[in-house]
Computed example of a mutant assay.
Amino acid sequence: MNSETEPNPALEDAFSKEFALKRGEDEVRYYYNEIDLNGDGVPETFVYLTGPVVCGTGGCGGLVVERANGSYKVRSRFSLVRTPVFVSDSKTNGWKDLIMFVAGGGIEPGYRILRFDGKTYPLNPSIQPEVIEQSNIKGIGLINDDKMKNSGIEF
């Protein structure tokens, strides 16, 4: 699933507040997609951010946000995000599990599963349970862009 290509000002407001970013000062690009993670018929939005102020050797920043009265509310924040990000067919506490690849920064490369705890997803995918059999990964590749063709949306 390729990311949206149109800028989203309300989404930009949400992630700039969460990460204390300043338009025009911080070199940030973003990717996003909407998908219903909790089965309520209203899609949540997964945001993947890139740039020197939101990335390190282990990955970049990310968020799951929900729409609320014309704006977005942050449900979960992530560090060390690498693409692709998968939305699993499996659920925990009514929300679909997320699967992220981890590597770099001394982390043993592999896929990790992030389960919703009833309020949020875990911040750091590198310390979550490993997906032992990669052939068992079933779901949607949510942020799955070819970065040579789509460099994201400039903030």
Rank of each mutant, 00 (worst) to 15 (best):
V54M: 07
C55S: 11
V47A: 04
N33R: 15
R67Q: 14
P43C: 05
E12I: 15
G51S: 10
Y121V: 08
V81C: 06
T45K: 12
M100N: 02
V47I: 13
R75V: 12
I107F: 14
T120K: 11
E4K: 10
T57L: 14
F15Q: 02
K138V: 04
R115Y: 00
M148T: 14
I143N: 03
V53Y: 03
L21T: 01
K119S: 15
P52F: 11
K149I: 06
G139H: 05
C55H: 11
A10I: 04
D13T: 15
N124K: 10
E34Q: 13
K17G: 02
G41V: 11
G118R: 12
C55E: 00
Y72V: 04
I132R: 15
Y31I: 08
F116A: 01
E6W: 10
K119R: 13
N33H: 10
L63W: 03
Q134L: 13
K147N: 13
I137G: 04
T45W: 09
A68G: 05
P84F: 07
V102K: 10
I107G: 01
S76H: 12
L49F: 09
D145E: 07
G61H: 07
T5E: 14
T50C: 07
G58I: 04
I143W: 00
S90G: 08
T92Q: 07
I127K: 13
V64F: 12
Y72M: 05
D26K: 02
M100C: 06
G152W: 03
G105W: 03
R115V: 02
Y111R: 03
T50N: 09
F19A: 00
N136K: 15
P122N: 11
P122V: 01
V54K: 04
G110D: 12
K22Q: 15
E44R: 08
R115P: 05
I127A: 10
R82V: 01
P43R: 12
G56E: 12
C60S: 09
P125N: 09
D26N: 15
S16Y: 08
P84L: 00
I140A: 07
V74E: 06
G62Q: 08
L98V: 03
A10R: 09
G61E: 04
Q134P: 01
P122F: 10
G51V: 06
I35C: 10
S79R: 11
V65E: 05
E27Y: 07
Q128W: 06
G39R: 12
R75A: 05
K17Y: 05
G141I: 00
D145K: 00
D89C: 04
N124P: 06
G24Q: 03
K138S: 13
I107T: 14
